[in-house]
Amino acid sequence: MTPRLTTARLVLRGLEARDAPAIQEGLSDWEVARWLSAPPWPYGREDADWFIHEAEGQHYAIDAGEGLIGVISVKPDLGYWLRRDHHGRGLMSEAAEAAVQAYFETTQEPLVSGHFEGNAASRRVLTKLGFRDTAPEVTFARPLGQDVTVQRMRLTADDWRASRA
């Protein structure tokens, strides 16, 4: 079961069947999907239903009081997306800080993440959390149907604590 986390503006909670329409809507926006590697394109309701079923206990719904506006996970990597109409307000940084804090409360294992080349917004989220570059990696981006370069990054528990001090 996914623990419930609360921030100043958000609740991070487990995914529920009622989130499927919001997930489908969010991942049907090309400006969101094009920065992700895993979701199919186009993204259908059956994809959202499958994701909720398969992701049980591994992902948080990001809820700003109006239902799901995005998803974040720390297993196996820190990964996330946010509906475009919520970009630019610091919500993902807030959600990611809560998720990373919860992660380091249960383990001292480093956390890895990454961002597509050119995704400056995602890079800002990660660097604010204290992530450091490791190496670029080529991976297949399913929505794009091609390989892309991902800048891999790593966050240790010590770097996390230092970034919060």
Results as ranks from 00 to 15, higher is better:
6 T>H: 13
6 T>S: 15
7 T>Q: 09
10 L>Q: 02
11 V>H: 05
15 L>N: 04
17 A>R: 12
17 A>Y: 00
21 P>D: 03
22 A>I: 06
23 I>Q: 08
28 S>R: 07
29 D>M: 12
34 R>F: 11
36 L>H: 12
36 L>T: 11
38 A>E: 10
39 P>G: 12
40 P>F: 09
42 P>M: 14
46 E>Y: 08
47 D>V: 08
50 W>A: 15
55 A>D: 06
60 Y>L: 10
64 A>I: 00
68 L>N: 01
69 I>Y: 02
72 I>W: 04
78 L>N: 11
81 W>S: 13
81 W>N: 06
81 W>D: 11
84 R>E: 06
85 D>L: 02
86 H>G: 03
87 H>E: 07
88 G>S: 12
92 M>S: 07
94 E>K: 06
95 A>M: 06
96 A>G: 04
97 E>V: 01
98 A>G: 08
100 V>Y: 10
100 V>P: 10
100 V>A: 14
101 Q>I: 01
104 F>H: 11
106 T>R: 15
113 S>T: 06
115 H>I: 00
117 E>T: 14
117 E>R: 13
117 E>A: 12
117 E>H: 12
119 N>I: 02
119 N>E: 01
120 A>T: 06
122 S>P: 04
124 R>S: 13
126 L>K: 05
133 D>M: 00
137 E>I: 01
140 F>D: 00
144 L>R: 15
147 D>Y: 12
148 V>S: 02
149 T>S: 14
155 L>M: 07
162 A>C: 00
